[in-house]
Every structure is written in structure tokens, then in C-alpha cells.
């Protein structure tokens, strides 16, 4: 935090992206303040994953429209961003201990002891192979690894897809428990009702454009509407 004002951790200015001729992101501008939890909502194909891939550097940002902690996306920003992709990024034959080794070696901010503690708390054995575990457990492992980094910006792409409600609640719990104090979190999900209590700001994407961007508490105060109501209104 700089002085009294919240500082900006992520800034997107007129960000666009095309896949061939198809526009996936169309002139998007927004920013995320330090310490905020921001929800990114929208139907399938609205550009959520594209936006996230731009931020984490999986898609190229030639125009440097994205600035993280004031710097364009690159290896310096990758060191402070902790990213969980929308699908499992590990091969099935990987052991959990390998993943711990991997994170410990490659990320200076990874707290291995903490990760092991949380894994043990969830009853997950270290010598198990990823391929033998249920989707919910895999998702938990991925979130535990990602949240065990002391990153400045956490980016979770669809952390609840295809897992049961109990696992979903556990994942939310793990997120809340492990988020470092001064960190921000960008969460992309379809599960608006389950997540709206943990979100400060909401962004709705529709066909690659931002159609709604508000502080959720302010919205509740002003219009006594839930985020879900707002979502239905925009997308129905």
C-alpha cells in the first residue's frame, strides 16, 4: 500500500485480442487494487480465459496493454503472479511430492512447509499420483499449491469447474485461509452464488467486452440487489 490510497496491482488499458479474425477481447480496461478480491463472470466464450491468459503471459501482449505492479508482462511479473489454469496442468503420472519439489525449486515465494500442512489437513498423501485422484482432489491440490505462494496477485481460472459442492466449499476455505494479506485475487467462475460473498468487485464479460463493473457491497447498499440478480439482468 502506498500512503493512504490503495495501490494498483493490475492495470489493463485498451486490451484487445483476436484469434485469427475472431475478436476474443475488445478494448478492455480495468484495474485491480491491492488487497481486493475481484470476480470475473460471464458465459462460456465471453473471453474470461483469454483475458487471464493475457495477464499471465500465455498469450502475447505486444502492445503492453497489461501492467502488473507497473511492469509489462514478463518474467518479473510472472514471479509475483500465482496462476491456476482452467484445467489440470499436471500429467497424471506426477506425484504430489514432485509438484511440491517443482514449486519449491521454481518459486522463491513458495512456502513448502505450509503447503504440506494444508495437504495433510485435507488428508492428501504426498506419494500419490495425480492421475489416481478425483477431480475435486486434484483441484484442491492445485489451489493449495497456488495459494501457498506469497504472491502479490493470485489468478484462479475456473477453480470450481466440475467439482462437487463440498469440495467447492473446501476450495473457497483454502483460498480464504491462505491468501496473503496484501495480495489481490482475480477469480473467474460460473458459480456466482457460491462466490459472491467473497468478492469485492465484480466484472462481467460479454462477447469480449466489459458490460458491468462494480463494487458488490456498494451495489447491495444502493439497490439491494445480489450479484446473481445483476448477472441475470445483464445476461438474460
Amino acid at each position: 500500500m502506498r500512503g493512504e490510497n490503495m495501490s494498483i496491482i493490475l492495470e489493463c488499458n485498451n486490451l484487445s485480442h483476436k484469434y485469427g479474425k475472431k475478436t476474443a477481447l475488445d478494448d478492455i480496461s480495468f484495474s485491480i487494487e491491492t488487497g481486493k478480491v475481484v470476480g470475473l463472470f460471464g458465459p462460456n466464450g465471453s473471453g474470461k480465459t483469454t483475458l487471464i491468459k493475457k495477464i499471465v503471459g500465455l498469450l502475447l501482449d505486444d502492445k503492453q496493454s497489461v501492467k502488473i505492479d507497473g511492469k509489462p508482462v514478463g518474467e518479473t511479473t510472472k514471479a509475483i503472479v500465482s496462476y491456476s489454469p482452467d484445467r489440470l496442468a499436471f500429467k497424471g503420472n506426477r506425484k504430489i511430492s514432485y509438484l511440491l519439489d517443482f514449486y519449491e525449486l521454481m518459486y522463491d515465494d513458495f512456502d513448502r512447509a505450509h503447503a504440506e500442512e494444508v495437504l495433510a489437513g485435507q488428508g492428501i498423501q504426498k506419494d500419490e499420483c495425480i492421475g489416481k485422484l478425483s477431480k475435486g482432489t486434484c483441484e484442491k491440490i492445485q489451489i493449495i499449491l497456488v495459494m501457498s505462494r506469497k504472491a502479490k496477485l493470485y489468478i484462479l481460472d475456473e477453480p470450481f469447474s466440475g467439482i462437487d459442492p463440498v469440495a467447492r466449499e473446501t476450495v473457497i476455505r483454502i483460498m480464504l485461509q491462505n491468501m496473503s494479506e496484501e495480495a489481490s485475487l482475480l477469480l473467474s467462475t460460473h458459480h456466482i452464488q457460491e462466490t459472491e460473498q467473497i468478492i469485492d468487485d465484480a466484472i462481467f464479460l460479454k462477447e469480449g467486452k466489459i458490460v458491468f463493473q462494480k463494487s458488490v457491497e456498494e451495489m447491495r447498499e444502493e439497490s439491494s440487489r445480489s450479484l446473481n440478480d445483476a448477472y441475470m439482468e445483464v445476461f438474460r
Partner: peptide
């Protein structure tokens, strides 16, 4: 604050 936030399942900011 963190314990309470986790118990209530809300954001620590809130």
C-alpha cells in the same frame, strides 16, 4: 479477522 472470515466464508476485507 482471518479466522472469522474463513468461518463466515467471506472475504477478509469485508
Amino acid at each position: 479477522v482471518r479466522e472469522l472470515a474463513v468461518e463466515a466464508a467471506v472475504n477478509p476485507n469485508t
